[in-house]
Design a protein around this nucleic acid. Structure first.
Lengths: 333, 333
DNA sequence: AAACGTTTTGGAACGGCTTCCACAAGCACG
DNA sequence: CGTGCTTGTGGAAGCCGTTCCAAAACGTTT
């Protein structure tokens, strides 16, 4: 059926070893021979079978990416970066969507066993010790993005600082009562992105001696609805906050909706600050803390490639910073 | 290194054939034998190597998806549907991002040769005759989504009708001068989604004898910037349109921006209608023509699976309909 | 207990590539 | 022209499953 190197070898009048050498740009082939082989390849329109290739090489030329895919545009942005970086070296990208804890654990246990990818990117999910151990046993290079584990190369964003600066900016504008809408903690991981945002808030409060009021902190899922409901709750307090800081832009969009529905004005009555810096924040003129999402994706692929080619490379911690984007919803500076 | 069926066979004291039969739930294995084998598998923690499996079966258990990935949220929505449908049968999803015509052709020519996927989903891109011929030659089942080719199962949306109804709704609100912002045609394909929208517009115009004015049609890329610029051009006409209809929500967002920048009011001064029905249209209260994106993705996977298991299944044309969502930007009915 | 049919089993062959080893060919030199 | 190197080449073995065929094991019948 399909054309194989045997056909090519016969047509070119050489041995299969030689054909293989030509295919792999092995130096030790005489020019005239190489020419003959190339002609035969051309003539037969031969393409090497990647599966067979994987079979003998033990490499698949593809990397997997585990991502809680479609809950937050944040992931899409990271994915863009991943995709871009993956293109050049010709790596295939296999997508593993995680919708719940069960699926997450499923992938964490199954993927190391299946030799289908050369490496793994994990976005915003922290594998537990058992999973990390399996990755190592299986020699599956793994890079974490927006998550951290001491034994894995991790790319994290300094969200404590990002949150700190956002809150500080609000304080400098005179806000004293600031409602904080956190994202809900998925699973029971040590490392939690959302928590960092809360810590940053505390730090900023501490600096100017604002007392922390538990009623001004809510946690919802990372959705517009969540943000909206939390905002409504805040704004119906007897003594409502004058600013609301949400742990994600998506939640902040919900806040805007809530504010609008109460016929209040942004930023005059309520200032709103988001987090992430997704594309639509710009459109809605939402102040936000910009994460370098695209860069995170790109860096992750780069590191993963290096880990694949050099399995003994020690894990590395890469910290990236955020940029505060002050826009209309906080009243431009 | 890795555990193979040979190890299992030895441990269980049976032949490799028997192990394979157990793995594949072949009926003809005595229960006691099966038990022995299962124990050995358990004990050695054996998982069959998917690559070797692919090698002898000729199947990879994964499907590829070619998608002009991150230019429009539309694709993300379709992808969600694809992802959902792909999960249950345990198919892996390999993502091929297309950023330009060169990459598109690259994939169209390369993918059929590489046996790395069992089937192919093509989103919003129309392969040319040569590509289709290659798909057939290579026995690569292919399903088109939001694109059409007579020899391939295609899932299309009745965009002529969608556009027609959108424009008709605008006309019924009293609009006579309607600016249309089309998406730019990528490549030189016979089938073009954007064109359908224009045809629908013509039909609606024809019904009530509105004369078509070429100056009220512009084509831009599928971006916010594109929409914004086109809108500005419209609104600076000596006799500007009272409604603007954009071929995508993203472009419509740009229109809203433009309108806002000119201190005009929506919908009083200018009504705005989008197309696609992405999630954010709801947030921005944008009137739009809702495409069944998630469903498209799901259906596509279902059909592709059927084509994979039955290669001689004739191509099929599936037409889906849109839903008109009248929201604030056209003044609710 | 022989003969036959059925169920179960072992393992060679196979899939298409890479790699390694042994050997052939080419060349320089004395 | 033989010797000794270097360079180039053929093809067996190996990667790890599935499948098919032949043969073993078992059961039934006379």
């Amino acid at each position: 059926m399909a054309v194989t190197i045997y056909d090519v070898a016969r047509t070119a009048g050489v041995g299969i070893g030689t054909v293989s050498r030509v295919l792999n740009n092995s130096e030790k082939v005489k020019d005239t021979t190489r020419q003959k082989v190339l002609e035969a390849i051309e003539q037969l329109n031969f393409k090497p079978d990647p599966i067979a290739r994987s079979m003998s090489l033990g490499r698949t030329n593809s990397i997997g990416i585990i991502v809680p895919f479609f809950t937050r545009p944040f992931f899409i942005e990271v994915l863009k970066g991943v995709q871009a970086a993956t293109m050049l070296p010709g790596l295939d990208l296999v997508l593993f969507d995680v919708k719940n804890n069960y699926q997450r654990d499923h992938y964490f246990t199954q993927l190391p066993m299946r030799r289908k990818v050369d490496g793994l990117l994990v976005i915003s999910l922290s594998p537990d010790e058992a999973a990390v151990a399996r990755f190592h046993e299986a020699n599956l290079p793994t890079v974490l993005v927006d998550a951290y584990h001491p034994q894995l190369t991790s790319i994290v964003v300094n969200n404590v600082d990002g949150s700190y600066r956002a809150v500080k900016a609000l304080i400098e504008k005179g806000h004293r009562r600031i409602g904080f809408i956190n994202g809900v903690i998925e699973g029971n991981f040590k490392f939690n992105q959302a928590n960092d945002r809360l810590i940053g808030l505390h730090r900023a409060f501490g600096e100017v001696n604002i007392e922390f009021e538990p009623e001004l902190v809510l946690a919802t899922d990372w959705s517009r609805q969540g943000g909206k409901q939390a905002a409504l709750q805040f704004l119906n307090l007897p003594h409502p906050p004058t600013a609301i800081f949400a742990a994600s832009d998506i939640q902040a969009f919900g806040v805007l909706e809530a504010v609008r529905s109460l016929k209040l004005r942004v930023p005059e009555d309520v200032a709103v600050m988001g987090y992430d810096g997704i594309e639509l924040a710009e459109l809605l003129d939402l102040s936000t803390v910009q994460q370098p999402m695209h860069l995170m994706g790109e860096l992750a692929v780069g590191r993963l490639i290096e880990h694949i080619s050099n399995p003994h490379r020690p894990p590395e911690l890469i910290r990236l910073d955020t940029t505060l984007q002050e826009r209309h919803t906080t009243g431009r500076p």
